[in-house]
Each structure stands twice: as C-alpha cells, then as structure tokens.
Nucleic acid binder design. Sequence first.
DNA 1: CGAAAATTTGACATGACTCAACTGGAGTGG
DNA 2: CCACTCCAGTTGAGTCATGTCAAATTTTCG
Lengths: 190, 190
Amino acid sequence: MEAFLNYLKKFIEISESEESIILSKCKTRKYLKNQYIVQEGDICRFQSFIVKGKVRTFYLDNKGNEHVVMFGIENWWAADLGSFIAQTEAEFNVQCLADTEVIQLSHSNTEALFIELPKMERFFRLIIQNAYIKTQKRIVQNYALSAKERYLEFCKEYPQLEQRIPQYMIASYLGITKEFLSSIRGQLDK
Amino acid sequence: MEAFLNYLKKFIEISESEESIILSKCKTRKYLKNQYIVQEGDICRFQSFIVKGKVRTFYLDNKGNEHVVMFGIENWWAADLGSFIAQTEAEFNVQCLADTEVIQLSHSNTEALFIELPKMERFFRLIIQNAYIKTQKRIVQNYALSAKERYLEFCKEYPQLEQRIPQYMIASYLGITKEFLSSIRGQLDK
DNA sequence: CGAAAATTTGACATGACTCAACTGGAGTGG
DNA sequence: CCACTCCAGTTGAGTCATGTCAAATTTTCG
C-alpha cells in the first residue's frame, strides 16, 4: 500500500484521513504467473495498480492471432479500460507474466471514491492524460519508423522488459512476426 | 457557445451560475482554411473545442514526411495535449482543413477553472478517457487489419470525412502511401 | 483558361510474412 | 543422470503487401 500512496502523492496532495478513505476502498491481491487479471468476454470489474510483477494486455483477432497491446510493470495500471468504464464485456486479456501483486479498485468503489473525494477525479484525469499522450506517441512511431527502429526504441524505453519477456511477445507488441524480429536481432548482433 | 454547453451537459450537470463561470474563461475564435491552430515548435496555449469546421493533426518525421495523427470535426477537441499540459514545445501541427470556428480555453484559464469548479476535472477525465479508449482501439486495428480493411473501417467510422478530405491525408492517417490507397480504391470500385 | 495540386497508373524494388525444418535450452519423469 | 518432450528462438526459401519513382491524367481554383 505504501508504494501506491507514494504514487498517488505524486499527483495530488492527500491528508491522513483521506488516505484512510482511499485505502478502505482498495484491496490487495496476488496472482501467479500466467493467471489472468482480466479475460476477454468477462466484465472488467477492477482497475489494478501493479505493485510488483509484470503483465501483458493482448487480444485475439478474428483470425485467432494474439496481439499484445501493452505491457505493464510496477506503478502502472492494468485493466481493459473500455470494459471497466462501461461495465461491458472485455475485448482484452490481461495476463501476468510473473507472480504479480496488485492493488485493486472495483468499479463501484471507484465511483464512490469520486463522490467522497472529488480530488480523485483529478488524480485519474492526470493518469489517463499521461497514458493518452504516450499512446499517441506510439501511433506516431509506428507510422514513422521501420520495424528495426521500433525495436531499438522499445529496447531504449523498456530496458527492464527487453530482458525478461519472451521475444515473441515483443514481436507482437511491435506488430511484426517473431521470425522477423529474430532476423532483426541477428542483423543487430553483427 | 450553445453547442459547447450542450456538449458539456452530456458529461456533467451545470447550473446557470456555473455556466457563466465556464463561459467567462472561454473565447470564440475563427480560423480560415489552411491556417494553423497549433504549430510544431510553438507552445500549445489552448485547448480548442471545434464548433464548426474540420482540422487535422499531423507531424513531420526526421525524413520530412508528414504523418496525420488524427482528424477533428464538430464536437471534438484539437490541441497538442502533451504540449498544452506541460507548456512545452509542440511536436504536432493542428491545421484547419476548412474555415473553422472553435472555443478556446487557455492553459491558465483551464487551471483556474479546475480550482473554481472542480467538477471540470470530471468533465475532462471523461473526455480523455474516451479519447484514450479510441486511441487504443486504433492501435489494435492497425495491427490486426490490412490496409484495405483499415480503409473500409475508416469510411464506415468517418463517413463525413471520407467525402471532404484529400485522399493523400487519409492515406497518411491510415499509414500507407497515396499511391497505394489509390490502387485500393481502384480495386474496390469494381 | 491556365497553373498548380491531387489522383491515377504502371514498372520495379523491398520489407515483412508464411511455412517448414532445425537448434537449443528447461523441465519432467524414470 | 539420462532420455524425452516441449517451448522459444533461429534459419532459409518463396511469396505477398506495400513502397518508390516517374509519367500521365484529372481536378481544383485563381
């Protein structure tokens, strides 16, 4: 919980009494490697703040191919936001890539929190703003850069991930096949 | 201003007195076709709500190629959000594709509004949440769909735009060359 | 009407994908 | 401790989607 409060305090100021309101709405939960926090078709009932571990968000297209949409590590949020907000069926899967510990806020607790503590609106506005800006940059990069350049960017931006995540998932995140990523890496080794 | 208030009321409830606070922070402004609302390198000083007209957001990569990041029409927002929030140099250009009328909120007025009327945090949270979800869907589509499929999706989603926007900009938005889009359209005509 | 901009067309080039075979660890069980 | 299996990763041949370039055509608009 400590990590979570520190994170919160980067965005808004909170008093001790506010802290306890927030914590009263949160639950800690642990997942094992390969477990799913969200599954396609279910309703995404929580926003999960990652305290420890790592996850991937992916979805299956109609040809049955997996596409990794994003990774999540410490201090990131994991959810199918579209599903969470509207409480409709999730399109995405969120799966743990290691044993993972999260802090969860349910939909109704989130709503309640917004009412009790309106400054939480600000908090989430700021979080999502940042996420949105990052996502937009990614779109831009995908268009402007070749696969090799995207891979190099990825290694620079997520050095922690490059080490510890199967290559085929990185390939999927980059929008290329595992074979092609392999050949790119081959070239780069020289 | 009427359109803007109606839009606002879709997301939050506002009293008459709150209305006038909001309006006191807003300015109407008109741009001519081809004028720039935001230019790369400038600081993005406003968020602009589009009352009438259309815009494109694009950026230039280091090879000098234009990449259209998004289009904007009535009831959308136009800004380089990254630049607006941090008040740093813009990476994106926002250019009018027709005579365009906008309602503008400056950075300092936006901040002031958040203080006077905290529910505006909620408003913008909701807006950005939606934008974020849309952007994520776009990333997914780009990976899962071929150029032809993406074009068809685009036509379905933005029928108003397909008509009235130069093809080479649509091609750029889709991440393909104008020549290739032309050939796709040729095929589809049959 | 004429010039500039947008679109189309076609020949050719290439980045990225497919498929199938191969390599090399990391368990697992006997 | 070995043999077996199972993944992940690699390699290579052949293919396809999309890009490049240059010229021809059409549209737009002053």
